[in-house]
Nucleic acid binder design. Structure first.
Length: 177
DNA sequence: CCCTGATTCGC
DNA sequence: GCGAATCAGG
């Protein structure tokens, strides 16, 4: 690909916005990050400051990476309150609470036994329908094994809570924009 | 190992 | 002018 005026312009823009060479290369398409860097040099665009003498940690432009974890009132929370939370049947209240500490819940669940899930209807296999959460709880080899059984939205196999547990991007690479 | 930008140098 | 290879660093 050749450097049309358009592409050069975009390059300048993105570069000045602090995007990394590889990110810019991705947006432009058809070029490597090396190409981008090379072009930047040829255009004599300001590289990422490295400052003369007292260089410390100059690089690393401001990346849009925003850490959305703010509240953190977690510490003020009682240690292990969970078990079977009394709550109205159609619990939609979960959603927000879950957003904040899915990870913790997940950890607890994996470490401890199976017990940490908020309200389970303790349904048996035969009691499941297409609208009940099929998240398994407990050891299938044992007697107390059951399924979550809460209402699942649409045709989802899990309730909103367990859907979040099941679908965790974890080490998600973010580069699409 | 992942990533970053910087430089070099054959094309 | 271009950009892969390489270097230097976090």
């Amino acid at each position: 690909m050749n450097w049309t005026d358009e592409r050069v312009e975009k390059l300048k823009k993105l570069w000045s916005e602090g995007l990394s060479a590889s990110q810019i290369a991705a947006q432009l398409g058809g070029v490597s990050r090396n190409a981008v860097i090379g072009k930047v040099h040829r255009l004599s665009l300001p590289g990422r400051a490295k400052a003369g003498g007292t260089a410390a940690t100059p690089t690393r432009a401001k990346r849009p990476t925003s850490p959305p974890r703010a509240p953190n009132y977690a510490a003020a929370r009682p240690a292990a309150p969970t078990r079977t939370v009394a709550r109205p049947a159609g619990a939609t209240v979960l959603k927000e609470e879950v957003d904040l500490d899915v990870m913790e819940q997940a950890e607890i669940q994996s470490v401890g036994s199976n017990v940490v899930v908020p309200m389970s209807r303790r349904l048996g296999l035969t009691q499941l329908t297409d609208r009940t959460c099929k998240w398994p709880i407990g050891d299938p080899m044992k007697e107390e094994f059951h399924f979550c059984g809460n209402d699942s939205p649409d045709t989802s196999p899990y309730c909103t809570f367990h859907a979040k547990l099941a679908y965790q991007p974890s080490a998600e690479r973010r580069r699409a924009r």
